[in-house]
Design a binder for these strands. Structure first.
Lengths: 224, 224
DNA sequence: GGTCCTTTTGGTCGTTCTGCCTAAAAACAG
DNA sequence: CTGTTTTTAGGCAGAACGACCAAAAGGACC
């Protein structure tokens, strides 16, 4: 068991960790990045916070190491600091939520995208962390621009709809979705259209702002 | 500067702290408990997490020491761990949100109830913590039973309304408020009535559950 | 070109929710 | 008993929502 003691003699955590729930949406499924551990359990990507580093910086640094992406939507989720959560010792973890485009490839050969809502054998308290992340991202889907992390700079409404359906774990009527997403004020048309595949070419949109936690509450009701 | 180093030689936080935003509502005002520091700044009540203790337990223990209340609504807010947040060293803090009835008296003579939305000279990053707490409690006001912490076991709807108005920082029409709060399913009538002062005696209600984080999302729209 | 299929998108319609209002019910003060 | 106060049921217009329809605008195939 790791322990630590500071210069005043008080008990201190052995280290400060960061675990990140990295999500993306592909083909209507919500996926989370997980590494395989020796005993068959899944674990979230994470690492230790260095002195003089903010936990969010640690999360970004570790994500860059493991996937190569740099401009990621990252926000803090919660602290998981119950005693005994880590068998190695007293190591609180600041869990983070991150979202990346679906073409992001893990560098670590042990890491893979798995279904976020599937049943997996998670290590430690990572099941709770994933559950917290899913609740968070689902709850703020229509109240913020979280989907910025997954969608490209310019996208048709149909692509946005598949992402929203994957996150919200539901289905939306295309016409109603278009009307409601435009009504939030979160997006604006780029003026261009995309004509790939059959069907009427779709107008392209972009998010009014790509800053995280933006655009709280233009929508009144909750889509069901 | 406090620092620490664990048995493996890695850098570790000097300690793990807890800061609590303790809120109550009195006479339509939302109040927060703050202690006065030597230099005139206000600080949130807090303390250090002991080994083998969960941060929430630390928050409850410290609140019991400082106010004497035991059965408190407590939930984790977020981790504040930016380097340099505490001039004494690397001390991450798990901020908590707590709510107590308005008759709670601080034991510490340096502690006092001050307006939560007033301008105060907060120490460290406590201004950010208070802001986060206010956003949180306001955001989940109609979606959970947070008000359980402030309201007594049995209450008339008018008392609930003043609490909701203090938290939500707005005014509600009495008839509309009664209709909407009952529609959430969060409360149920006790069958008794209270007749204090002039006016028709009010029916008393209780929360269906006093467990924190209960009753997400029965209400559809957001009250404005 | 013509026909069929696809996807996008503007609009309609009935239902539900919301904010504001009126008025009755039920107490107290004088 | 009359006036005042507070609670509470209900009505009403407007807004929001979910479901649906149909036209627009492209590709695929003959």
């Amino acid at each position: 068991m790791w322990t630590a003691r500071n210069s005043e003699g008080y008990e201190a955590p052995a280290a400060l960790a960061v675990d990140t729930v990295l999500l993306t949406a592909r083909a209507g499924d919500l996926l989370v990045l997980a590494t395989q551990i020796d005993d068959g359990h899944r674990a979230l990507p994470g690492g230790l916070v260095g002195a003089g580093e903010s936990p969010e910086d640690t999360a970004r640094r570790k994500l860059a190491e493991k996937t190569g992406v740099t401009d990621v939507y990252v926000e803090q989720l919660a602290a998981f600091a119950n005693p005994g959560r880590d068998p190695r010792g007293w190591i609180p973890s600041i869990a983070h939520l991150a979202l990346v485009p679906p073409d992001t490839k893990p560098r670590d050969p042990d890491a893979a995208w798995i279904t976020a809502r599937g049943r997996h054998r998670w290590a430690f308290d990572h099941r709770d962390i994933v559950r917290t992340a899913l609740d968070r991202v689902e709850g703020k889907l229509w109240w913020s621009n979280v989907a910025v992390g997954i969608l490209p700079a310019s996208f048709p409404l149909s692509k946005a709809r598949t992402v929203y359906e994957a996150i919200g774990h539901t289905h939306y009527d295309p016409a109603t979705f278009a009307r409601d997403l435009k009504a939030t004020g979160l997006i604006e048309p780029t003026g261009e259209t995309s004509a790939q595949g059959p069907g009427r070419p779709a107008a392209l949109y972009r998010f009014t702002s790509r800053e995280p936690n933006w655009g709280a509450g233009r929508r009144k009701r909750i889509a069901t």
